[in-house]
């Protein structure tokens, strides 16, 4: 996606294989394994519910809720933003 082909001479075909593999694993986790995720409140939610803090939460409405296409959008956005950022600050030519 944001992995530009001119990554430099150090990027070999083997260098791209692990990257595509890693992306596949992330997509698998988000798309398949997440279907088996527990819907129970997480640690913070549980503790704040038990101790009367949870009602202080101001219900902010998100633009989107997690689901097939929106999850993909979130993943893509994280990938592009982080890649662009790390590419911009990297030490060049090493």
């Amino acid at each position: 996606m944001s992995h530009s082909p001119d990554v430099s001479t150090t990027t070999t075909r083997a260098g791209r294989t692990w990257w595509v593999l890693g992306l596949g694993v992330a997509l698998f986790v988000a798309g398949v394994i997440s279907r088996f995720a527990s819907s129970a409140p997480d640690g913070l939610e549980r503790v704040t519910e038990d101790h009367g803090i949870a009602e202080q939460a101001v219900g902010s409405v998100g633009l989107l809720s997690y689901g097939g296409a929106t999850t993909l959008l979130g993943l893509g956005l994280v990938l592009v933003l982080t890649s662009a950022l790390s590419w911009a600050v990297r030490t060049r030519g090493r």
């Binding site: 944001s2 992995h3 990554v7 430099s8 150090t10 990027t11 260098g15 990257w19 890693g22 994280v78 990938l79 592009v80 982080t82 890649s83 950022l85 790390s86 590419w87 990297r90 030490t91 060049r92 030519g93 090493r94």
Partner: peptide, 9 residues
């Protein structure tokens, strides 16, 4: 660097 930057994303 050029090698490790792709891992960050």
């Amino acid at each position: 660097d050029d090698r490790t930057a792709p891992l960050a994303g």
